[in-house]
Design a protein around this nucleic acid. Sequence first.
RNA 1: GCCCGGGUGGCGGAACUGGUAGACGCGCUGGACUCAAAAUCCAGUGGUAGCAAUACCAUGGGGGUUCGAUUCCCUUCCCGGGCACCA
Length: 884
Amino acid sequence: MPYSFHEIEKKWQEHWEKNKTFQAKNPVDVSHASDGSAESSPSFGGGKGEAPKFYVLDMFPYPSGSGLHVGHPLGYIATDIFSRYKRLKGFNVLHPMGFDAFGLPAEQYAIQTGQHPAVTTEKNIERYRNQLKQIGLSFDWSREVRTCDPSYYKWTQWIFLKLFSCWYNNKSGKAEPIETLIEEFERNGNREVDASCTEVSCFTAQWWNQMTEPEKQEMLLNYRLAYLSETMVNWCPELGTVLANEEVTNGLSDRGGHPVERKLMKQWQLRITAYAERLLSDLEKIDWPSNIREMQRNWIGRSEGALVKFRVDGHALDLEIFTTRPDTLFGVTFMVLAPEHPHIEKIAAGKYREGVLEYAHRAMNRTERDRLAGAGKISGKFTGAYCIHPFTGQLVQIWVSDYVLAGYGTGAIMAVPAHDTRDYSFAKHFNIPIKKVIRCGENDPECYDGNDGVLINSDFINGLGVRQAINRIIVEIEKQGIGRAKVNYKLHDAVFSRQRYWGEPFPVYYKNGVPYPVDEHALPVTLPKVDKYLPTETGDPPLARAKEWKTPGGYPYEHNTMPGWAGSSWYYLRYEDPHNENVFASSQAVQYWQNVDIYLGGAEHATGHLLYVRFWTKFLHDLGYLPFDEPAKKLINQGMILGEDGEKMSKSRGNVINPDDVINEYGADTFRLYEMFLGPLEQAKPWDTRSIEGVHRFLKKVWRLYHSGKNESQGNNPDDGVFLINGEPPSLPELKILHRAIKKVQDDIEHFAFNTAVSALMVCVNELTDQKCFKKGILETLAILLSPFAPHLAEELWEKMGHRGSISYAPFPDYSDEYLKEDVIKYPVQFNGKMRFMIELPIDYSPPQVEAAVLAAPQAARYLNGNSPRKIIVVPGKIVNVVV
RNA sequence: GCCCGGGUGGCGGAACUGGUAGACGCGCUGGACUCAAAAUCCAGUGGUAGCAAUACCAUGGGGGUUCGAUUCCCUUCCCGGGCACCA
């Protein structure tokens, strides 16, 4: 009987689907437990109380037109093995799949063909789902989510409304309803408010109460966590839309590689900076790869320092700068403004004015890419204006240069060429004086930017160390009212609007030019039909084409849509209660399933999705909707599968391997096993079509182990055996083989070391084959061990052994130490660290006994060479080393 | 430039907290079965020398700690990833 994987796999995939084998139960289902499913999680079926939950999640895919390639399922297979393992271990496992279905490719296709993106998307999803099902993945498809589905994006919009209607209170350290802020404004103005907000000037309660409604709304936008504001954005003319920082690399869009410019535009933004500190510090408490955490740390980019104001000479203006080294304040010899700095226009003076404005204009209009290309080249202009040094009263030149970034700090710096390499190069280039204020040793370099040293030439901080000097001068700065200590972040608020059709509409309408939230009960605001998916002639987003698209009250809706990452920032929560029409997920559901236990996906989402999903989780936690404030306890990044040429798989290289073809030729079980056997999950590794034969052979060998019986027409073909296992009691060697495998497979799965788990299964099967072991007591357990990896084959064998239901909920075997321990051990014997021979000794020999036995061994004499050993090291159970 | 990973047979990779380097698989060589092939099975397979027992060399290079180092330390080279005027 040959191993006919096609039949077997089809049979069991249908069985799982028909019997809803992998449907996970929510705790509420217990009360009305008779749901008619034949087999499923043991947890709530028998009313035996709650099984422990386990939530295993894959990053959901964007369903592209080209379908899956062999690299995509790698992570899905890994999580599937883990999920199946956890089910065997008695957990109620949540293992869902869905689709990140809004996005550019479907829209570009729509622009070209006029086909509605929903149609293309639907088709692609269909294809993806079928491909995934073919692999035998144990997803609970009844929980599938799609971000483009109105019943899903209703809740994306709902979360947006919450963000819109909240502000971040730094005093309580969390988000709060905007009403609490309004009350405070009405009572005390904003004097006492400590919020994460856009810079606003102080106002009193009286002022507030006298403001008009639009004025109030305008003011509140400075506080809301979702707000509309005029900001510098990354504009991509080719895509006709703005992009978030993490969607741009080296001045090119990640999607398509088009040039990106800086542009001032009114856009929706999310105040993620309010959460910067928590996003940073909570990295400590999650089990994520250190490189991902490091990338997030860098992205958030916290630095401690001070804001200091310098008077501009002859103007009623202050120039505010941020510095991490206020201790070097006495070393300032010039100031530098970013080309975008608003003061330039006001202070550029006399004969310098024209050149300065021209320079600033040119620098500003260069694309991000040009600017990066020119990095390292020094350029700048003296504005003709001066600052007054707050402590010395000396005049300090103000320059403009593109080495100062508008987007960081205040867009202006104090330059200390003696202690900053960039300032130093600039000063050298333009012949500006350099003043040392730190002595670090005997022969000081001309520019020293370290912080070991003692302050000199610095008035009241002379003689102090850098650390003390910083503290001391900040006290003085604050006392004199010229500045304050400040923590600065590289992280920016996230641009949240896109000038696109295929995304979530904002639940926002405009009245008198002021944005108002759509009532929660009127959600979802669904996408209107448009005649074309292009911007209007006047350059408005595609949604502006829907002229009749208005609120019942006749007000126009927002024409922007949300970015791709909106829907993916909370999807893991929807899986917990996917059909709930009243809330995004019930409190029982989130209480039971909690956050994700294992989250698996690519490292390319480190500073995008993985930061946003943490942000939204913390926000919903603040509002009391979630009992946890991190989305995933443990994160694993799977490595890429490269083409056979060792290059990244891509259509253009022609090295793409299609999983359908592999499954067709070898079956899903072989495919699964092979992807795992390829190497460590996290590592990048090349595909090798030849090696797949090896795992396929292994599965055939497994099959034969259960089919070694002879039938009448016994020929030479080993596939001719009939199913045969017997009930004889297993022998000790057989039990040893089995229990070694149980332990190894279990340990390896727990550590996500699937490659070595497969190897352990191979060893076990090889050894059992050598033993000619056809005993039920062994082979039954072996089938369970195998079932997470090759579930179809395992199900088939399980059924043949007389079991009725699915193997998916069989108990994972316990190994017993009794079968793992040996009573003799083969000691490797080294002489001077070189392995010379093996000697078999009883396990319980004491070191002196081992020593004696080794020296008495016949082989020992030739290495001793008549000498007596100087020293003998015996590591019990491990090794013996004789030093001669 | 800075920060992370990683360099082990012809190839993918194994090796627990320092303890037999090369598990498992691919490939290759020889053999069995067969008219032949496929499939399957058996034996061998890091390098050099030797008929062999065996010896020496070997985990990117160099140095060190240790009875003993792929594993720890220093140094250097190469590859992959991330960040990059962040004041």
